[in-house]
């Protein structure tokens, strides 16, 4: 139990993932700055931002339902910590950890931060936040369909392995799934879904600062916003690591950096989609590619 507690809070759960998340966020900002011919912030900037937020005053809208407004950032954070523990552990200790079906649990846990922010934004009583909620939930519906389909590819290819640790071992023995056509298609879809899960351009419709002024986040300030940001940073670690574990034979630093660079490039070179375009994109093209990937994997490709 004590070991799990350590795993959960310090390594690789909360503190470690948060630290990596801060670094990832810095890399994101630095690369973005370089693309835009700016210098970019120093390495400690994300942490400095969080500290700054913690001393800022907290404003709560008058019409809000305060309990839900205050607690929902915590729900998101808690879920992402648990998800990160589940994702990291099989990479570190292989088949010893995890349980059958943890992959399903992780899929659900990774949706929880979005649900939490939806709850908090709904409770804020701001119509723009409601608009953000409406977009966010539609985005969840949009990306969840291809995401589920493409995650079936590894399960089918490994003949029904449902445990992250076993999937990693299987890939070490038989080569990672990404080396097969179906695996490539699946991870392609998964990367787009990841971008939407992280709420980054071109799928940042629920925040869309130039349209609805940060939408779901509009009423959050001070430490509440800091927790939301921290959750986001951690998601930026957990989701790519999850993808490398499932499709790419387990975590390694360079694989993570590759995925991170893809995320950053995608977000810097694309305009924001409208929500209906995003839904059509995921339910149309992406779902079709995912289905093809599944069919290929059934055929053993």
């Amino acid at each position: 139990m004590l070991k799990y507690l350590f795993n959960f809070i310090i390594f690789p759960g909360f503190l470690f993932t948060a630290a990596v998340g801060l670094v990832a966020s810095w890399i994101d900002r630095k690369v973005t700055a370089r693309i835009q011919w700016r210098v970019g912030p120093p390495w400690y900037q994300p942490l400095a931002d969080l500290v700054k937020l913690s001393i800022k005053e907290i404003m709560i809208p008058r019409d809000s339902y305060k309990p839900a407004f205050l607690i929902s950032p915590l729900i998101g954070l808690s879920a992402v910590i648990l998800a990160s523990t589940f994702v990291w552990l099989p990479n570190l200790e292989l088949a010893k950890t995890g349980f059958t079906g943890d992959i399903i649990v992780i899929i659900y846990l990774l949706t929880l931060p979005a649900i939490a922010i939806i709850l908090g934004a709904s409770a804020s009583g701001n119509p723009l936040a409601s608009l953000g909620v409406s977009r966010e939930i539609k985005l969840i519906l949009a990306y969840e369909l291809p995401f589920i389909i493409c995650l079936l590819v590894p399960i089918i290819k490994s003949n029904g392995l449902l445990r992250l640790g076993e999937l990693v071992v299987y890939q070490r023995m038989n080569g990672s799934f990404i080396s097969s056509p179906s695996g490539i298609l699946a991870i392609l879809v998964a990367i787009f879904c990841m971008q939407a899960k992280l709420g980054l351009v071109p799928f940042d419709v629920s925040e869309a600062e130039t349209e609805i002024m940060a939408g779901t986040h509009i009423e959050y300030s001070g430490i509440l916003l800091a927790v939301l940001k921290l959750t986001r940073f951690m998601m930026m670690v957990v989701v790519p690591v999850f993808l490398t574990t499932v499709f790419w034979g387990g975590f390694s630093v360079w694989k993570y950096v590759v995925l991170l660079v893809i995320i950053i490039l995608m977000r810097n070179t694309n305009p924001r989609l409208r929500i209906d375009q995003a839904v059509r994109f995921f339910w149309g093209k992406m779902a079709a590619i995912a289905v093809i990937a599944v069919l290929l994997s059934v055929l053993g490709e």
Partner: peptide, 27 residues
């Protein structure tokens, strides 16, 4: 562990400036 996670988040909240909390009209 989800509860512990809530506790961790609560500890972070403690670092926040809740003294300066005030009610505003929605923006």
């Amino acid at each position: 562990f989800l509860l512990i996670g809530l506790g961790v988040g609560f500890l972070i909240y403690l670092a926040g400036n809740f003294k300066g909390m005030r009610e505003t009209s929605p923006y």
